[in-house]
């Protein structure tokens, strides 16, 4: 596991750095309280079940918070829970010692900037894609997105770029448009 305890620069950080669990617990408390406040405007009948669920969530969140506070010395490496397998979920490359997985040091910890940068960029690109497809329509946005994301991922070979774009567009047209008659958005510009 990359997050296995190891002497690392992050471990030397001041202890007050909130652990991910503490942040999780506190955010869940905030979410439950916010939603509970919302239920005040509902009729008693409509609100009863959501309130029950929210109280349950609040209790669980409080338990997570308390547990996180009780182990304050926990360095980042102390979070031993792997991304839960849940019957086929965790990215399995984590489980293979002896392959080229980089050693887990502070620079590459679960929450380091180096690790989070690319997912954040990816998410931004995807959000841009969806925003774009509302404006210019599905097909142009998808072509632009694919080219952009492939380029961003380091693909420079024009044959791969063209092949992937053609393949995905053809697949979507054949399956979703012709077979399933999905009216893909044409965008605000062309309506």
């Amino acid at each position: 596991m990359p997050q296995s305890p190891s002497p690392s620069p992050t471990a030397a950080r001041p202890r007050r750095t909130p652990t991910p669990d503490l942040i999780l617990g506190l955010s869940l408390i905030a979410v439950s309280l916010g939603f509970l406040a919302y239920t005040l405007g509902l009729s008693a009948q409509a609100a009863a079940w959501p309130r029950g669920v929210l109280v349950l969530l609040l209790v669980l969140a409080a338990a997570i918070t308390v547990r996180a506070l009780r182990s304050p010395a926990a360095p980042p490496g102390k979070r031993p829970e792997p991304v839960p397998a849940g019957g086929g979920e965790s990215p399995a490359q984590d489980e293979a010692p002896g392959t080229e997985a980089p050693p887990a040091d502070g620079e590459h910890g679960e929450w380091s900037r180096a690790v989070l940068r690319r997912p954040a960029l990816t998410l931004a690109v995807v959000v841009g894609y969806v925003a774009l497809l509302e404006i210019v329509g599905f097909l142009p946005a998808t072509v632009l997105y694919l080219l952009g994301h492939l380029w961003f991922g380091g693909v420079r070979d024009w044959r791969i770029l063209a092949g992937v774009v053609a393949g995905v567009v053809a697949f979507i047209q054949l399956l979703f448009v012709y077979q399933l008659s999905v009216p893909l958005p044409t965008g605000l510009l062309f309506e």
Binding site: T122, V126, Y129, V130, L133, F138, T142, Y145, L146, H149, L150, G153, G154, V155, I160, V164, G167, V168, I172, F176, V182, L184
Partner: peptide
């Protein structure tokens, strides 16, 4: 490579 798979998967997620 993953750099090819990831954009394809995203496009399929969206559609």
């Amino acid at each position: 490579p993953m750099s090819v798979l990831v954009p394809v998967i995203v496009a399929l997620c969206v559609v």
